[in-house]
């Protein structure tokens, strides 16, 4: 109980959650607040016509597109993070708990996968699938996280696998899955939440980056990543077309990273 209370009082958690929540609300409720439609042409391209953020490369309203452009990217980031966490944690905890040659084999395989920077994984898939659907992006961003999550999860699990309380559970004949679920599980929650926060930060960076490179799932649709690419040419005359989505992304990553960092330091303290 007091662990949760301690977390709620940490300023990093408070500020981080506030920022994150703000951006998420912007993404979810944005379409309801937008003064114009997602594809409405409200003026000439790259001018200050339209609402106060001006118009984009087609003359669409930048503010409206920022308000429309959060849902897809936020949802994809969250799904990709969840996928990467599930696959990575399963893999890593399995390796740690199995130990011996199984661990060795799993981790060597993991090392090979780690040799691919995440952006390279994305580009390799994009070279084969030119026009990815949104779930393809979720799939490969998530899978690109998995080996990195696996390494962290294994490390965290290892510190507990060797504790005597696991030996004690084995000595009374507790089933293996039960040991993982009831003895290891509760100890892994906070450190893995910290990792999830970090992964969410990277997910949005990566997915926005894919949009920035011009490989978005739905060309033309409002999307924070894609908008930076569309409006790059107008950076000199109408910077808000690029700056507005970029600032929202920056804000979101700062928020999630604050939460991840606070959770991480709490996990480190709880260990002693």
């Amino acid at each position: 109980m007091n662990r949760l209370a301690g977390l709620a009082r940490d300023p990093k958690i408070v500020i981080g959650s506030a920022i994150t929540l703000l951006v998420v609300l912007l993404g979810v409720l944005g379409p309801l607040l937008a003064p114009h439609g997602e594809f409405d042409i409200v003026g000439r391209p790259f001018t200050h016509e339209g609402s106060f953020l001006g118009t984009d490369y087609l003359g669409q309203d930048v503010l409206s597109r920022v308000l429309y452009g959060g849902r897809s990217i936020l949802l994809m980031s969250i799904l990709a993070t969840a996928l990467g966490m599930v696959v990575g944690v399963t893999y890593g905890v399995l390796a740690a708990y199995a130990g011996g040659w199984v661990d060795e084999l799993l981790m060597r395989t993991n090392d090979v996968l780690l040799a691919f920077p995440q952006i390279l994984v994305a580009l390799l898939v994009l070279s084969a699938v030119r026009q990815p659907s949104w779930w393809v992006i979720v799939l490969f961003v998530g899978l690109a996280h998995a080996p990195r999550v696996a390494r962290v999860a294994r490390g965290v699990a290892l510190t507990y696998v060797r504790r005597d309380f696991v030996a004690a559970a084995q000595a009374v004949g507790e089933k293996r899955w039960r040991i993982v679920a009831t003895e290891l599980g509760p100890n892994l929650v906070v450190p893995l939440l910290a990792e999830a926060g970090l992964r969410l930060t990277y997910s949005i960076g990566l997915i926005a980056g894919i949009g920035f490179l011009g490989f978005a799932a739905d060309p033309g649709a409002a999307d924070w990543g894609q908008m930076t690419n569309e409006n790059r040419l107008g950076l000199l005359v109408q910077p808000w077309g690029v700056l507005a989505p970029v600032l929202v992304i920056a804000l979101f990553t700062i928020g999630t990273n604050l939460i991840a960092d606070a959770l991480g330091s709490h996990a480190a303290q709880g260990d002693s």
Binding site: D164, F165, A168, V172, G173, E183, P186, N187
Partner: peptide, 29 residues
């Protein structure tokens, strides 16, 4: 050899108390 391979009755009859109580109890339970 291992507790897992012993019968429930045998496991019940022999109980182990560890050296370091900071490690032998799960801090989260």
């Amino acid at each position: 050899p291992t507790a897992r391979a012993r019968t429930v009755e045998q496991r019940k009859r022999i109980q182990y108390v560890f050296q370091n109580p900071y490690q032998s109890l799960n801090p989260r339970r």
